[in-house]
Computed example of a mutant assay.
Amino acid sequence: MIDKERFIQNCIEAVAEGRGALRELVTEAVSDSAQAMAQLGEPTHAGITPLYRSKDLTIINFVWAPNMSLMPHNHHMFSVVGIYSGREDNVFWRRTDGSIEAEGAKSLGVGDVAVLGRDTIHSVLNPIGKMTCAVHVYGGDFFAPEKPRSLWDHETLVEQPWEVERVKSLFAEAEARFNAWKA
């Protein structure tokens, strides 16, 4: 990974070029796990740490708690995901009459990058017993999207409004559950 500030500036300059240009930058950023960790910091807690935010670009450092699962959700913007530590398993979903159903999956390990389209619905699992770290670059404002986002209940697959504060609390709850289990 190049210097964190340079990476952010490169993404700002590349966002107009689209997902392909951002994919190249994220691929470079996660190609050296140790350097990415040095630039972004050793994880101490699970969570969502914004590195940059504007109406057309958000860069986030995600740290997934061990064995954490995040319910199906959408973004209404493209995203580029790069893993620099651990593993992230994605299940992809499609809408049906009144619900969603699984239609595929992709497992990402260190150095892997995935591009998700505007209409992608996915759930995320950290299947391992340690923190997973990933850089996510979004083609919009992740925290205040132009179009309301949705999430789906894990068990019932009922659609609900997506709320960033609820999602942030899920990261803290997953970390607390893991720490309690570990103790």
Rank of each mutant, 00 (worst) to 15 (best):
T58K: 00
A14S: 08
M77W: 07
A183G: 14
L108D: 08
F7D: 09
L57I: 09
V164S: 10
D141Q: 00
H75C: 11
V137E: 05
P43Y: 08
Q160V: 00
T58E: 09
T96V: 00
L170I: 08
K106L: 15
A65V: 00
E155C: 01
R6F: 07
A176M: 11
T156N: 04
E163F: 07
G41E: 05
V167K: 03
A14E: 02
E17K: 15
M71L: 13
G18V: 05
F178E: 09
V80Y: 02
W162V: 03
T156C: 02
L51E: 14
R94I: 01
E103P: 02
V15K: 07
A105T: 14
R23L: 11
N67R: 15
D32K: 11
L40V: 04
F178Q: 05
Q9Y: 07
M131F: 15
H73Y: 07
P161L: 01
I8A: 07
T96G: 01
L108Y: 09
V91M: 08
A172V: 13
L70A: 12
L157K: 11
K168T: 10
T120V: 15
P148M: 01
T27V: 06
H76M: 13
P50K: 00
A29H: 03
W93G: 00
E101T: 06
G129I: 00
F78D: 12
D97M: 07
Q35R: 15
A176N: 11
H122N: 03
V15P: 00
E146F: 08
R53L: 10
I60G: 08
E165N: 13
A176Y: 04
G47I: 01
T49N: 13
E13I: 10
Y84C: 09
S123Y: 03
A176F: 05
H75G: 08
E101C: 03
W162F: 15
S33R: 07
R53T: 15
D3H: 07
S169I: 00
K55N: 13
L22T: 01
V81Y: 02
G41Q: 08
S169N: 11
E28S: 12
A174H: 01
A65C: 08
N179R: 15
K4M: 12
E28Y: 06
G104E: 12
M77N: 02
H154T: 09
A180E: 14
P50N: 08
E28D: 12
N67D: 09
R6C: 05
E28M: 10
V80N: 02
R87A: 11
I2K: 13
V167E: 14
A29N: 04
I48Q: 10
A38M: 12
T132W: 01
Q9R: 11
S85V: 02
A29W: 03
A172F: 09
V15I: 14
N90V: 05
V124E: 01
I2M: 14
F7V: 11
